[in-house]
Every structure is written in C-alpha cells, then in structure tokens.
C-alpha cells in the first residue's frame, strides 16, 4: 500500500508540473503590465525601468518560469503585484476557510447523496424513490448561489437560526464555526448531493441485481446487512470516481458561494486577483487549487483500491 501511494504521488509530479507551465504561460499572456499595475501612473520612466529590472521582467519567459518554479517548490509563491502581500501566506490564510466549506459541503453531499441513493434503490418506484429522483433532478438544476440566497432569506433573515454572512474559524469557536459554515455548505453541497444520489441509486440498482446479493440473501443474511455491507461496498466503487469529480466541482462552486455569504476564502481572493490582474496571486491560487484537487484524487484512488480488490496490486 505504501509503495502504491508513493508511486501515485510520484505520478502527480508531471501533472503539477504541466499545470504550473500552463498557469504560468497563461498568466504571462495577461494584457496588463505588472509595472504599470504597481506604480500606477505615478513614478518616472526610470522608476518603471528600475522596477522592471528588479522584478526580472526583462528576462526571457523561460528564465522567469524557472525562477518562479524554483521558489514555488520551496513554498514561496512570490509577492502580490498589487501590494506587498506574500502570496503563500495569503493563500494559506484563506485555504482553511475554503477547505472547511468544501469539506463540510462534501460531507453533507456524500451523506445525503448516499442515503438518498440507497433509499431510492431499496424501494424502487416507491414514494421514497420518486422523491429522491425528483429531488436529485431538481438539485442538479438549482444554481448553488441562488439556493444560498434562499437559505439566507429563510434561515438567517427570517428565522435567525444561522448568521447570514461571514465565517468564524473553527479555532475561534467550534460552535460558531458550525453555525457559520452550515448554510453555505448546504447551498454548495446540494448539486453534488444530487449527482451522488443519482450515481448511488444507479450503482445500487445494478449491484442489487448481482448474483452475490441474491447469494448472500440465500445464506440467510439479513436484508439490512446485505444492503449496507455487501451491496453498498460494491456500489461505492463507481461512486468513488464521481466523488472525486464532485469534490473538484465543490471547490469551484465554493468560489461563488463564498460571494453570497461574504466569506473571505480563496474565491474572494481569486476574484479580487483576477480583477486586479494580480498575476502571482492567480498563479499561486491555481497551483494550490490543483494541489488540493490532486490530493483529493489521490485519496479517492486509495479509497477505490480499498473498496475494489481488483484494483489492488497483488
């Protein structure tokens, strides 16, 4: 298992490398001149030239990329063009916010998605199935930010059960954290929950028709046990792939949901950076996001191996 993990980790290096090349070359194409951005219309031509030289902007792109990558590998993603904010620090400060939002949303999506999918598969064409299917179809059509607005209107503005906006770090107060993260996470998790429910239902329906389910029942194992242990374990195999993809989707969705709840996460940082054309910040953000996605994929790969013995090296 450890060697598999190591091999998978090593396989990620080229991907991250490619992403870094893409990001760097892409942002190098941005129309704005960083020196103009920094100095604005103040400063003399000499000052512009000096800054350009100091920032190494006169070097060829390849040299700049190599320098950036060298620093990035050491955890230094550079400094914002717009102010003296350290990109690594800014990203790391925001990451827990977005991560906890995404993680809670993923938990909600996985728990409700699997529950709904299993329930629907167990009682096909019953009211539970109809409700779950209709819910899942709707869930995939509802924009997460709209759902967020509606949740705010109902649960924050009218009922005052949750704060309408903002985010409390878990270190500050776990209870307030939970309250602050609930509405955005529910808003964010809805469509993923729907997607997972659909996938689980379809996988469960497939698995429940398998001989080994009937065989387990024939051995007198209880329906509950057969469904929860035998069927679900196998049904999760195709669901895992969906999970991995959904977590990427959640991470992206968090960028928008953060705006609804005025949460200062990576999304707010990203939108600010894009509006300011703050190249180091954009580069750093993309790289860190891909890093997170890749780790999620790694985790799901491992989970896949645990659930599906055929995928394991013998």
């Amino acid at each position: 298992m450890f060697r598999l993990l190591l091999r998978r980790l090593l396989a990620l290096v080229p991907l991250l490398f490619l992403v870094s090349v893409l990001t760097f070359s892409f942002t190098a194409m941005l129309p704005s001149d960083p020196v103009d951005l920094i100095l604005g219309d103040t400063g003399t031509t000499e000052q512009h030239d000096m800054l350009r030289e100091r920032m190494g902007l006169n070097d060829p792109v390849v040299v700049r990329y190599a320098r950036w990558l060298g620093n990035a590998v050491q955890g230094d993603l550079g400094t914002s063009f717009f102010n003296s904010v350290d990109v690594t620090r800014a990203v790391m400060q925001r990451m827990p916010v977005t991560l906890s939002l995404t993680a809670v949303a993923a938990l909600i999506a996985i728990a409700t998605g699997i529950a709904a999918g299993v329930a629907a598969a167990l009682y096909p064409r019953s009211w539970i199935d109809r409700l779950a299917t209709i819910g899942a179809t709707f869930g995939q059509a509802v924009p997460n930010f709209w759902f967020g607005l509606i949740l705010v209107a109902i649960f924050a503005v009218n009922l005052h059960w949750f704060p309408a906006t903002g985010f409390t770090p878990i270190s500050q107060s776990p209870w307030d954290w939970l309250r602050s993260v609930t509405l955005p996470a529910v808003a964010l998790g809805l469509s993923s929950s729907a997607a997972i429910a659909r996938q689980v239902r379809s996988a469960m329906v497939g698995v429940l028709q398998m001989d080994y389910i009937r065989a387990a029942r024939a051995q007198g194992l209880s329906a509950r046990r057969v469904i929860l242990r035998h069927a679900l374990t196998n049904a999760m195999v195709p669901v895992i792939a969906v999970l991995s993809f959904q977590i990427t989707v959640l991470l992206g969705g968090a960028l928008i949901v953060e705006q609804v709840f005025a949460i200062n996460g990576l999304g707010t940082l990203a939108i600010t950076a894009v509006r300011q054309q703050d190249i180091p910040m954009i580069q750093g953000l993309v790289l860190v996001m891909v890093g997170m996605v890749v780790l999620v994929q790694l985790a799901t790969d491992i989970l896949y191996g645990l659930l599906n013995p055929k995928a394991r090296p013998s």
């Binding site: 924050a156 704060p163 309408a164 906006t165 903002g166 709840f261 005025a262 200062n264």
Partner: peptide
C-alpha cells in the same frame, strides 16, 4: 473589518460582529 458587501456589513452589525 474589510466588508465591502453592504449586506454582509449590515449583518455583521446586526449580529454584533
């Protein structure tokens, strides 16, 4: 606090943040 969103700022005030 840096709260450019008017609603968010209002909510922050309402909730005592």
């Amino acid at each position: 606090w840096e709260i450019p969103d008017d609603t968010a700022r209002l909510n922050a005030l309402r909730t005592g943040q």
